[in-house]
Design a protein around this nucleic acid. Structure first.
Lengths: 252, 252
DNA sequence: CGTGTAATTGAGTCCCCTCAATCGCCGTGG
DNA sequence: CCACGGCGATTGAGGGGACTCAATTACACG
């Protein structure tokens, strides 16, 4: 005898803002009850399967959105096919730019993803008359700017080894933060992206990513279970190779 | 008989906001008369000679500022000395992040520069009660974010040749925009930075920058007068090598 | 259990970096 | 006036790290 499958939230099912799991951190975080009511009127949910495109560069932008669950990527492609990932969009992150008609980057579902979409024009109108929303969006944008600049340093000046170890410590830190526990040896986690996505994120090729990971394994710094599941065996030696200085890499 | 030297605006001399040359584009662009009056009360001017540091990463941030004249750079340095430039700050650009106590990046005067500084705490207070200021800062931040992401693509995926030609077309475009004329062959301009600064901006070494410029000269794509002054002889062939597709490189 | 996609591994090449010497431009002082 | 020194830029030689191309291998999924 088996239990009935847990009900799954789909694109159709509607969640009240007050019950929303990203309520605390999304663009609506500082909105009051009345402002939430206004948002309720212009919002709708959409889901995308892993790997599916969400927006293409150059498309008309009909909505802006918050990521509710899952993960998406921001990227740009050169005419000859080279791809650079420009951002990783996780729950509570904001997609789209108010005041702009065309989409500036490709947005792709990295895993199954659910978006809380706001029709763009009404959202812009509300933004113009709602300081709370404006202030929150400013704060989020400045955070994104810091993240982008951090990544510029990595892309411009770090070696393949440094890039990989940076990414791994980043994911490990996020995992630890999510579980509210300290970063410690023996940490195991699932990497939320394929080797190709890692390569596009780090400005490397798939082969180089793979070789670096194999090398780290031979050096007993990490272990693989399958292809996505990673156990970090020696966090200290890992952090020592990020190029940032070990103290910085382990904190923050 | 010689003319008297033109009076030079120094750090001490005070300019009223209504007469300010960056009035139209700076953070104060959308402020009304009363708001300008409030800004007047918390602002002061500072000047820095070319090459001088303005802020160091980790310093306490006592003021935020707008660049009035000249140019500055935003950069970060790794423990072993590698430098990556993260932004170019030109007149009307904003420096500093409201709501943060510590400076996140090194800021350095690229040329002689004059800043319009606002004491941070009063500025933050004003930001909190002034939607105009908030909206303007949001818009500027989103622009910066786009610039940063464009640069991520360059740093992560472009070759040395592509990087150099991108920078040259960028400077040429800005020069043309400033002079309100179209981008055309025979364009001559002064590069606003040393080879070292170019290298740090592009994620290359000085030697590679120099070699690429020499190669472009041998290919009759450009000419040098001295070391800073450049004449672009064949804009089409230059733009063809940016990796962006020639149409994009020549427009925008 | 088979099949297709993702990941790994190998061989070879090339682009950019490193190290080092030289050049050119200026301001200074003899 | 020119020699000198300092700094930025150029050029050269050589090496290495990441890429390309290609062949397996491992894994996920039906």
């Amino acid at each position: 005898m088996s239990l009935a499958p847990a009900p799954r939230v789909t694109a159709a099912s509607y969640v009240k803002c007050t019950n929303c799991e990203i309520r605390e951190r999304a663009v609506c975080a500082t909105c009051d009850a009345d402002e939430l009511r206004q948002l309720e009127e212009i919002k709708y949910y959409r889901s995308f399967d892993a790997g599916q495109p969400i927006m293409f560069e150059g498309d008309e932008m009909h909505f802006v959105a918050s990521v509710v669950t899952g993960a998406a990527t921001l990227s740009r492609t050169l005419p000859d096919g080279r791809i650079q990932m420009l951002g990783l969009l996780l729950p509570s992150d904001f997609i789209g730019r108010p005041g702009r008609d065309l989409v500036a980057y490709d947005v792709t579902a990295l895993r199954d993803v659910t978006l809380c979409c706001f029709r763009r024009k009404p959202f812009e109108a509300m933004l113009a008359r709602t300081p709370h929303l404006n202030a929150r969006l400013l704060d989020m944008s400045l955070d994104e700017l810091d993240v982008a600049r951090e990544w510029m340093l990595l892309l411009g000046r770090k070696t393949a080894r440094e890039k990989i170890t940076c990414l791994l410590t980043l994911v490990a830190r996020r995992k630890a933060a999510l579980q509210r526990r300290k970063l410690a040896d023996g940490l195991t986690f699932e990497i939320p992206m394929s080797r190709e996505a890692m390569a596009n994120y780090l400005g490397l090729t798939i082969e180089t990513v793979s070789r670096q990971i194999s090398a780290l394994r031979k050096e007993k710094i990490l272990e693989l279970q399958g292809t996505r599941r990673i156990t970090l065996l020696d966090l200290t030696r890992l952090a020592a190779q990020t190029g940032d200085g070990i103290d910085i890499a382990l904190s923050a």
